[in-house]
Amino acid sequence: MEQIKMWFDENPIVYSIFKYLLIVAAVLIAVQFLRKALKRNIPNTAIRYKSQKGIEILGYFVIIILSISYFTGNIKDFTVAIGLFSAGLAFTLQELILSIVGSLYIFIVKVYTPGDRIEINGIKGDVIDVDSIYTTMMEIGQWVDSDNYSGRIVKLSNAFVFKGPIYNYSQDFPFIWDQFDLPIRYGSDMELAKSIIVKIASETLSEYTKASKMQWEDIVKKYYIEDAQVEPTLAIALTDNWAQFNLRYIVDYKRRRSIKHLLNYSIFKAIEQTNGKVVLASSTLEIIKIPQLKVDVNKE
């Protein structure tokens, strides 16, 4: 011990660094201890999660304050050395530092929270965790059609919040507009077809129309945006082969696939019950006239 003490006395800079690392380690151990204590004693998942994240952020804040106080108040000759060290460390760990800053930005600005469905850096999924470095998502899409989980859990650096757009499907307005086309054969009762589609859409989507209308009023008050029509709308376009009915409607962002299935099935069954007054079209080839062929079997 005496030799170690003498060695530290002969190398004050090393002693200062060692002492600083011990302080940082003590703070990190205290943070982990408090996180585990909160995990054991708080039964509510949401409150426990937010409390743990709050303790983690507080720990980083304490380390920053202690570092500033330690290096500016107790070390004089070490200022230049620590400046060069910090610059090199910042350059080497710039992605890590940006990720930590990104986590603070996410929590303060509330860019997204666990439970939100987002798309960032070309990856779409539901946010299941946000820590000091990574955002963890349950991936949606890729080789799976529509908005179904692929089964992969994706960890994405928080630094990406500064590098590109973030699409949030659920924040402020948890509804999206969707649409699909219905080809109706020429000669069908167009008014009957229109009434069938609008009636089924209005009945199926009445719950979402009412809820989205209330939330859209809050969006208009909060942002500089014009009012929008949330009721189902139908547009008709004439093509070479059929009359194309385009149904546009609003739906909960988590029920896009199931509602589209329900609308298609209900409309299909209703059209079948019209006894041929309305017929769905398909790509066909119509032969107008077959040329006559004359074959002379007697001719040599």
Rank of each mutant, 00 (worst) to 15 (best):
P165L: 08
L93H: 10
K289M: 01
Y169I: 05
A211R: 15
P232C: 07
I250D: 10
S99T: 05
L98W: 08
M6C: 14
Y265M: 08
K299H: 09
E226V: 12
E95F: 10
R40I: 11
N148T: 12
Y134G: 03
T79P: 04
K213C: 05
T204P: 09
K50Q: 12
E203W: 03
L98V: 06
K39A: 10
I17F: 13
F245W: 02
E95N: 14
L234R: 01
K39R: 11
E203N: 10
Y208N: 10
Y105C: 07
I17A: 07
T45D: 11
I133F: 01
G164R: 00
I47V: 09
K222E: 01
D145P: 14
D147M: 11
D218Q: 13
Y186G: 01
P12R: 08
S67A: 12
F18C: 13
K36S: 14
A30D: 00
V144S: 07
L192Y: 05
I236K: 08
S51I: 02
Q32K: 09
Y149L: 08
P183Q: 06
D240F: 06
E217I: 12
I236H: 01
Y60V: 07
S86D: 10
A46R: 08
K294F: 10
T274V: 06
F85N: 03
I153S: 01
D9P: 04
V251M: 06
L98P: 05
I153V: 05
Q292T: 11
I290L: 12
Y70S: 02
I120D: 06
L285W: 01
D172A: 04
S206N: 10
Q32M: 15
M190D: 14
V198W: 11
L234Q: 00
L21I: 09
K50P: 07
G102V: 06
N148C: 11
K221C: 05
R117I: 15
L84Y: 07
K260Q: 15
N246Q: 11
I100F: 04
V111N: 08
G276N: 04
K124T: 13
V109P: 08
F162T: 08
S258Q: 09
F78K: 11
Y149R: 02
S67T: 07
